[in-house]
């Protein structure tokens, strides 16, 4: 804690306080379940261009903590994007260890450069998967104003004998 300047802390705390509006729209009502038309062959991870045109999909279950996050799919690749979430870190909690890419936006226009903003998780959905990934944010807690707190957990799994995978964002 002592290694971070008080100014930096103040900036982050200010950014965490209420009033930071969500800019992300709700998923379009025509968003399809992420399992629809899911290919079973493995493909290379999508290019940035492909992500730009990717359709929004829905997870099997989404909780209120994922408000402001959007799920995209290209072929079997999923991207959970939370552009307004002050993301402190992203961690694999267990299971399939490969195929991930994580992003944390180091800065956002008009904000202090210290402030991490927006987090994204990318992974492929494949048979045999068991993935649990946690996004953490900052907030007041037992380690002071910048305690790492749970923001949301993505759980995706596709058991061998089940026809479709399941993904919850809670």
């Amino acid at each position: 804690m002592s290694r971070v300047s008080p100014i930096a802390i103040a900036a982050v705390v200010a950014a965490l306080s209420p009033g930071v509006a969500h800019t992300e729209p709700e998923p379009p009502s025509n968003a399809k379940p992420f399992t629809e038309g899911l290919p079973t062959e493995e493909s290379k991870k999508p290019t940035p261009d492909e992500w730009r045109d990717a359709p929004v999909v829905t997870a099997t279950r989404t909780g209120p903590r994922a408000k402001g996050c959007t799920v995209y799919r290209v072929r079997e690749w999923i991207r959970v994007s939370c552009p307004d979430l002050v993301t402190s870190s992203i961690a694999v909690l267990g299971g399939t260890a490969t195929g991930y890419a994580f992003w944390i936006d180091p800065q956002r226009e008009g904000k202090d450069a210290k402030l991490p903003a927006g987090g994204e998780i990318q992974f492929p959905v494949r048979k045999g998967d068991r993935r649990v990934v946690q996004m953490l944010t900052f907030g007041p807690g037992y380690e002071g104003p910048l305690t790492q707190l749970p923001a949301l957990v993505v759980q995706e799994h596709w058991l061998d004998d089940e026809p479709v995978p399941i993904m919850t964002i809670l």
Partner: peptide, 12 residues
């Protein structure tokens, strides 16, 4: 297991 940290998280 893999953990990806923001700069602030690393410092703290």
């Amino acid at each position: 297991a893999m953990v990806y940290r923001s700069a602030v998280a690393k410092e703290l």
